[in-house]
Design a binder for these strands. Structure first.
Lengths: 348, 348
DNA sequence: TTGAAAGCGTTACCAT
DNA sequence: ATGGTAACGCTTTCAA
C-alpha cells in the first residue's frame, strides 16, 4: 500500500460510485463496449478524465490474462545496429499500446532467473534480437506457450522470425564488387554462432565465385570492431600479390574496424583495397568511412515482427512463420566501382 | 485465459493443496519468512521446484503494491554512452530482482500516453538517463508519488540524481591541457538543454582561463557526431593564427566528429591541434581516435542510482538527494602532453 | 442496456 | 508456527 492516507487512487469502484452505476458498466463504457448507451459512455468518460483515472494493468492482467508487456532480449550494444533497432522497436510498440520489459541486453549469456522473469510478469510474447544463442529464453517461452518472434535472426527452434534477405544482400554486394573489377575477395565473418552472418557469406560466395574470381581470405571478426581491426592488420601484412582486392564484412562495424587498420598500415581504401559492409548503421555514413553497404529495412522488419507477434498472441495456435524482407545496396565511397554506371539499373 | 485445457498453471493454491497447508504458509515459506519451520520451508521449496512454480507478479503487485518494475527513459541511442549505460543498468537491476519497462528510448519527445504507461503498470520507480528535458515523465511521477532518479543528469524538479562530477572533470581536462602548453581553447558544447554539458564547460573554463589562456571558440555540436564534424570543419577553415590550439568536447562522440573533420581537412591531431572529450565511450579507445577523455564511473553511478531508488521505494518520504561521483582522466594520444610527466602524479 | 457476483493469484492482517 | 480470510482492481459470465 503505497498511497498516502488521504488520497485514494481513482479506481473503477470510485468511478462507479460517483456515477451511480455498477463497476461492470464502467468497465464496459471505458473500453467502448457498444452495448453501453452513448450518453452513459460519455458521462463515464468525462468522469474518468476529470478524476484522472488510470487503469491498473496489473489487475487487468490478472483478470484477463493479457499484460500488454513484451519481453525483449537485446543484442550487444557495442554494435550500433541494435541501438537503431531498439529505438524503432520502442517507438512502434508504444504506438500499439505495447511496452517492453527488458529481459536482457548485451553480449553475455542470459541467466535462468532472468529468463524466467518473463514468466513471472506474464509477458504476452517475446521478441529476440540477439544474434547469439539466446536459446535459453526461447526455450522457456516455447515450454510455456509464449509466442516468440526473432528479428534479425534466422528462425531456429520454435519461433517466428523476420529478417532481411541476408543471402540476397550478400549476393548483391558480390555482384557489385565483381562489376567493379574485383576478383579476389576476403570475407570478415562473425563465427558459426551467427545465422545471419552465415547466410550473408553464403550468398556472397555463391555470387562472387564465378569464373576466375575467388575467396582468398577468411577471418572471424566476432561481430566487433576490434575483430575487424585485427583482420585489417592481418591483411595489411600480406604480400601485395596475395592480398585480396576487396573485403566483404558481414556487418558494418567489422568493416569499419578493418578500414581503420588498413589505413593505419598505409593502405588506401578503396584504391588499394575495397571494403563493403552490411547493416547500414549510421556510423558507417560518416565521411571518414563512407562504407558501401546493404541496408536492412529496419522499420519494416520491426513492423512485421510486431505484427507476427500480435497475431500469435491473439491466436497461439498459428504456425511459425519466417518472413524475409528485401534490403537494398547503399553505394558509398569505400569500394571501387566500374567506370560509367553499368551497375546502376542493371545488375540490381 | 491463455492456458490449454488440461494444464492448469501451478499456483500457490495448487501448492498449498498438495502440501496440505494453507496458502499463507506457502506464501511465507517461499519468501523465507523465519516464522516458518525449516522443515516446512524445505518441503514447500521442493514441491515448488518440482512443479515448476512461477509466482505471478501481477497478482503480487495487486496485493502488495510493489511491482518490481522500474520505468526507464533512455537517451538517444546515437550516443554509445547510453548503450553502455543500458547494459550496465540491466545487469545490475536483474541482480536485484528488478526489471525495466522501457518508457522511452531516443531523442524525440515523450508522448503523454507513453509517459502514463508508467502509472498503468504501477512501476515502483523511474530512472531517467536522457539528457534532454524529459520533464514530462518526471512530472507525472512527481504528481503520483513515484520516486525518480536521474543518472547522468543534474537533478532538476523533484528527483534524486547521480552523476559524475562534471565540473571537476572539465577542470581536470583543462589543467591537463594547460600543462601540455595549450593556451587557446575551443569548446564544443551541446547546447543549453544539457545540464551535464553546461557543468563540464563551466569547470573547464574556470580552470583553463588563468593568465594568458583563453577560450577562443565555442560551437554547439548538439551531442552528435555530425555536430562535432561541423565544428571541426569550421575550425579547419580558420586562419592558423586564430585557430584554437586545443579543443574540449563535452562528450567523446562530438570530439570524435571533430577529429575526423580536422584530419579530413589536413590538420594533424594532436600535432596541429589537441582534442579531448568526455565519457570514455568504447569507440573513443579505437586506435584511430585514441581520444584523451574523462571516464565516468558508470558502474558506480548505476549502483548508487539503483540504491537511491530502492531507498525511496521503501521510504517515499526520503528527501531528494544528489550524489556526485568522482571520475578519472584517461590519457591517450589525441592531446599533446608536457614532456616528462609532470602531470602524472601532480596536478590530478 | 445494465447489474451482481465470481474469479484471477498473492499478500497481509488477525486469529489460533 | 500455522490457518482463515479479506482485500487488491479489473474482466467476464450470467441474469434481469
Amino acid at each position: 500500500m503505497t498511497d498516502a492516507p488521504g488520497k485514494p487512487r481513482t479506481t473503477i469502484v470510485t468511478l462507479s460510485r460517483s456515477a451511480g452505476v455498477s463497476t461492470s458498466t464502467v468497465s464496459r463504457a471505458l473500453k467502448g463496449d457498444p452495448s453501453i448507451s452513448p450518453s452513459m459512455r460519455a458521462r463515464i468518460a468525462a468522469l474518468a478524465a476529470e478524476a484522472g483515472y488510470m487503469p491498473n494493468i496489473m489487475a487487468r492482467t490478472l483478470s484477463s490474462g493479457r499484460s500488454g508487456l513484451i519481453g525483449l532480449v537485446l543484442g550487444a550494444a557495442s554494435n550500433p545496429f541494435y541501438a537503431m533497432l531498439l529505438e524503432e522497436l520502442v517507438r512502434q510498440a508504444a504506438a500499439r499500446q505495447q511496452r517492453f520489459m527488458i529481459i536482457h541486453a548485451g553480449a553475455g549469456p542470459i541467466e535462468d532467473s532472468t529468463a524466467e522473469a518473463l514468466l513471472h510478469y506474464r509477458v504476452d510474447g517475446c521478441l529476440i534480437t540477439s544474434a547469439d544463442l539466446s536459446s535459453r529464453a526461447a526455450d522457456i517461452c516455447a515450454r510455456n506457450g509464449v509466442p516468440v518472434v526473432m528479428i534479425n535472426r534466422i528462425p531456429r527452434q520454435h519461433a517466428s522470425a523476420v529478417s532481411c534477405d541476408n543471402a540476397e544482400g550478400g549476393g548483391t554486394l558480390a555482384r557489385f564488387l565483381r562489376a567493379g573489377g574485383h576478383r579476389r575477395a576476403g570475407i570478415l565473418h562473425s563465427g558459426a554462432g551467427s545465422s545471419n552472418g552465415i547466410e550473408r557469406e553464403r550468398g556472397f560466395t555463391e555470387a562472387f565465385t564465378r569464373g576466375a574470381a575467388r575467396i582468398v581470405f577468411r577471418f572471424d571478426a566476432r561481430s566487433v570492431y576490434e575483430g575487424g581491426y585485427a583482420a585489417g592488420e592481418a591483411i595489411a601484412e600480406m604480400p601485395a600479390g596475395k592480398r585480396p582486392d576487396c573485403l566483404f564484412a558481414v556487418s558494418d562495424i567489422i568493416g569499419m574496424g578493418a578500414m581503420d587498420a588498413l589505413r593505419a598500415k598505409g593502405l588506401r581504401v578503396p584504391q588499394d583495397i575495397s571494403v563493403v559492409g552490411f547493416d547500414c548503421i549510421p556510423d558507417g555514413a560518416r565521411p571518414h568511412y563512407a562504407i558501401t553497404t546493404f541496408r536492412q529495412p529496419v522499420a519494416a522488419m520491426v513492423r512485421r515482427g510486431l505484427d507476427l507477434l500480435a497475431a500469435r498472441i491473439g491466436e497461439p495456435s498459428l504456425p511459425d512463420e519466417a518472413v524475409l524482407l528485401r534490403g537494398e545496396i547503399v553505394i558509398r565511397a569505400s569500394a571501387r566501382q566500374a567506370a560509367g554506371d553499368a551497375w546502376d539499373k542493371a545488375a540490381g
